[in-house]
Design a protein around this nucleic acid. Structure first.
Length: 565
RNA sequence: UGCCGGAUGGUGUAAUGGUAGCACAGCAGAUUCUGAAUCUGCUUGUCUAGGUUCGAAUCCUAGUCCGGCAACCA
């Protein structure tokens, strides 16, 4: 198994403590974990947490982690999902080596185990319909009653089970139940179904089977077959643990894996349920599983998130049994933290307004050196052209000039980054729309490159592009998909989709400095003073560059509630 | 009114009977050719009530609140 470089020294948590203890006491000499997704959807950031726990702990303890498709329900599973899962786990930075498995490959062994349970009097074929079963099962506060088929002979059950497998009964008629305890306060122990009849083509086994094991029965077996030592899963399986243990006990399996549960990830302003994500894709609320607004790994990847930033996030989130809600600001922090160190800087104007430098010659062009990354001197510099007509950000000019405002305004001087100091001498406005159409300035020829020989300071530095060198590009500005912290938190009868943010995608035309327009697909960079962007890996072409905003830069000026003086 | 689990600042997470710490967020200031980054400082917390103890977030008792569980889903 290969490893991503650890972001920080190994964290500790209650699961790692258990494992460390198991090694110390000699219970296990080598640990084996597994990540067992059902291939019925794309992996999302919640899975990333589980992957980091499953693969991460195995790695730290020099063990191994298996990737297993938990495909016991053919109705919802497809090969497309299998491929996407493998791709995403790999992309995140983890490697399962030769340990890639399918539950479906264990079906034969599982049937043998079921027969053994029947022979031992621990399971039986039941003919109650699921409707009827509701009465027998009882409710949490009252015990259930036993199925009339519960005490039929093992031989009879065995024979019926064989016929079930042979396809002699319609879907949903007979089933195999574990014989446990109809009075158990834990509903999962009231003779749960372990095999059901379901005629559905399985993406891996085709039409070979018409009976399929249920999760509760299959999972402990798969874990045992693979020699898993620690079976890590989310909290909702906690009440299933007695059943997990029961199955392994009845079959007298010597080396029994231990199931340990941790809290699943929740993040503000997003939903992390496969059902809902599928709905967003299927009903066109987003443009696919890899829509950059989606919390799927495919979406985050397309957006420009890095595997290491996601791993860093998962580590910062921690591992506990407390059902928590993590602030999406933490995820944004993680990607900014990394990109600040690694992303080259360029200038791009997203909402352009023209500036004319009145005292700058018509045909002249200056080429200035721009630092690629102030955090990394080794990244070098690149050249940026300056000429008489420029574009600056509309928001970097105001007619009035409130206190603490140090961008461009009539009579005020600012620095054009890496260029000259300019002073605004006037502007024209379209009277019909009220929009500023052109800003007039003069420049100080002594300030080339952005430094004043007389040592005078300007408080404001703004970015710009030379009009005649500017390259137009499409920019996609993404915002959170939901406009409330807890999109799922809706009153009875209200759908979570009413919380969808209608402005989660804004497409604009930006003007880029020439070098920026030449970056290859998939390149991450910073638009100075705006944010981190990535050249879209699919849609961008040299003739039509497309940039996705990964995350904006923090903006304390905007936060100060600025627009108002 | 059943079973299982959980409760530490706004959020997430440490402290395993001995000074409640870290991160994110927020707020101030310094610095800055990115109102970014960086640096400094600050605000805010042990669910409640009893008990054990020299000493309790931690142990005990009783409550309160929150989450999960009644698919032939996983």
């Amino acid at each position: 198994m290969t490893t991503p470089t650890p972001e920080t020294p190994a964290p500790s948590d209650f699961i790692r403590e258990i494992i460390a203890d198991d090694i110390k006491t000699g219970k296990h000499s080598r640990i084996v974990t597994r990540f067992p997704p059902e291939p019925n959807g794309y992996l999302h950031i919640g899975h990333a947490k589980a992957i980091c726990i499953d693969f991460g702990t195995a790695l730290e303890f020099s063990g191994e982690c298996h990737l297993r498709m938990d495909d016991t329900n053919p109705a919802k599973e497809t090969m497309e999902y299998v491929e996407s899962i493998k791709n995403d786990v790999h992309w995140l930075g983890f490697d399962w080596g030769p340990h890639f498995y399918f539950s479906a490959d264990y079906f034969e062994r599982m049937v043998e185990c079921a027969c053994e349970l029947i022979r031992k009097g621990k399971a039986y074929v039941c003919e109650l319909t699921s409707e009827q079963w509701k009465d027998y099962r009882g409710i949490p506060t009252l015990p259930g009653k036993e199925s009339p088929f519960r005490n039929r002979s093992a031989d009879e059950s065995l024979s019926l089970f064989a016929k079930m497998r042979a396809g002699e009964f319609p879907d949903g008629t007979l089933c195999v139940r574990a014989k446990i305890d109809m009075a158990s306060p834990n509903l999962h122990m009231r003779d749960p179904v372990i095999y059901r009849i379901m005629r559905a083509a399985h993406y891996r086994t085709g039409d070979k089977w018409c009976i399929y094991p249920t999760y509760d029965y299959a999972h402990p077996l798969e874990d045992a077959f693979e020699g898993i030592t620690h079976s890590l899963c989310t909290l909702e399986f906690e009440v299933h643990r007695p059943l997990y243990d029961w199955v392994l006990e009845q079959l007298a399996i010597a080396k029994r894996p231990r199931q340990i549960e941790f809290a699943r990830l929740n993040i503000t302003y997003t939903v992390l349920s496969k059902r809902k994500l599928l709905e967003l894709v299927r009903d066109g609320y987003v443009k696919g599983w890899d829509d950059p607004r989606m919390p799927t790994l495919a979406g985050l990847r397309r957006r420009g998130y890095t595997p290491s930033a996601i791993r860093s996030f998962c580590q910062r989130v921690g591992v506990t049994k407390f059902d928590s809600f993590t602030d999406i600001a933490l995820l944004e922090f993680c990607i900014r933290e990394e990109l600040n160190q690694t992303a080259p800087r360029f200038m791009a104007v997203l909402d352009p307004v023209k500036v004319v430098i009145e005292n700058y010659p018509e045909e002249k062009v200056d080429w200035f050196d721009a630092v690629n990354n102030p955090e990394d001197p080794a990244a070098g510099t690149h050249r940026v052209p300056f000429s008489r007509e420029l574009y600056i950000e509309r928001a970097d000019f105001r007619e009035d000039s409130p206190k603490k405002y140090y961008r461009l305004a009539p009579g005020k001087e600012v620095r054009l980054r890496y260029g000259y100091f300019i002073t605004c001498t006037g502007f024209t406005r379209d009277e019909a729309t009220g929009q500023i159409t052109e800003i007039r300035c003069t420049y100080d020829p002594a300030t080339g490159g952005g430094n004043a020989p007389d040592g005078r300071k300007v408080k404001g530095t703004i970015h710009w592009v030379s009009a005649k060198h500017a390259v137009p590009a499409e920019v996609r500005i993404y915002d959170r998909l939901f406009n409330v912290e807890h999109p799922d938190d809706v009153p009875e009868g209200v759908d979570y989709k009413t919380n969808i943010n209608p402005d989660s995608l804004k497409i604009g035309q930006a003007l880029l400095e020439p070098e920026l327009a030449a970056l290859p697909r998939g390149t991450r960079c910073q638009f100075e003073r705006k944010g981190y962007f990535m050249v879209d890996p699919l849609d961008s072409t040299p003739a039509h560059p497309v940039f996705n905003q990964i995350v904006p830069l923090k903006d304390s000026w905007a936060k100060a509630g600025t627009p108002q003086p």
